[in-house]
Nucleic acid binder design. Structure first.
Lengths: 140, 140
DNA sequence: CCATTCCGTAACCACATCAGTTTCACGATA
DNA sequence: TATCGTGAAACTGATGTGGTTACGGAATGG
């Protein structure tokens, strides 16, 4: 299936925020960098704020800033904040009690899915927003 | 996002096929195990057949059988057959040429996404259909 | 104090995907 | 040759996503 692009946009926005530094940015400015709508950005940043990664302030001269150092924001944290459901899902069809496989499969799949999800997240943990900012600067 | 359940159903069907052994099964029988429609099963098995994991034969006393030993069917192969797009996707918004981050982000994200996808698939490679059949039998 | 700026949310739309269903043509075989 | 099963197309309803408009509330600069 076509994966959602929300994670990619969220990382993009965070890198932009970190790139700008202290001053932060409004959802309008961030949306311009992504070439999307300000509300889309606010929705994503809302989830990131709940996870304690950014903080937003309303009012004149409001906007968003990172809530912690960019080196302490790993892509794993971003992914969990944006896609808490994970990448794999079990089917919800009722089990056929007459079939041994049907009775067992969900338990077995659950274990496998957890492992794959963990491997996926461990890999994401190796990259932080600060890393991506550094790479952006290096290529300038 | 709510991930698709096609991978889970595909594995379920393959385990059921392997569990039954040589004789194979019809889409009707497999659908009964999953508690879904036969056409849904045929669609999935169509993708698996293209990947060379199963073979389907029409006609009277037709049905599906595994095209190779269940020990040689890893969940990685199944995943790639069912979800060739992978788990992460870049956003397709046009890049804002006035923004350094916007110009760089997709290249950087592409590298990160590839790595995470690889870690995910490597983990899936460690489990085969035969493993799941063995675990099913062990718990009986 | 008040107008401006910006966030937070809700509501709505268009679009895509998914699971399920019906239908039918084709091929194989008993 | 009559039957059975696959393969494929078309349609439905449900759901998620990205985009958009709109509005209330909070903060602030004049």
């Amino acid at each position: 299936m076509a994966a959602s692009t929300r994670f990619a946009v969220a990382v993009h926005v965070l890198v932009a925020l970190a790139y700008l530094g202290e001053q932060g940015a409004t959802s309008e400015e961030l949306a311009r960098s992504v070439n999307t709508n300000a509300v889309v950005v606010r929705r994503l940043l809302g989830a990131l704020a709940k996870a304690g990664l950014v903080s937003g302030r309303g009012g004149r001269s409001g906007g968003y800033t990172l809530a912690r150092a960019p080196g302490r924001i790993t892509l794993e944290l971003v992914f969990k904040a944006i896609e808490p459901e994970g990448v794999l899902a079990l089917h919800e069809n009722p089990t056929n009690r007459a079939c041994e496989v049907s009775c067992q499969i969900k338990g077995l799949l659950g274990t496998v899915f957890d492992g794959a999800q963990r491997a996926f997240e461990q890999r994401l943990r190796r990259t932080s927003i600060a890393d991506l900012v550094g790479q952006t600067r290096a290529r300038t």
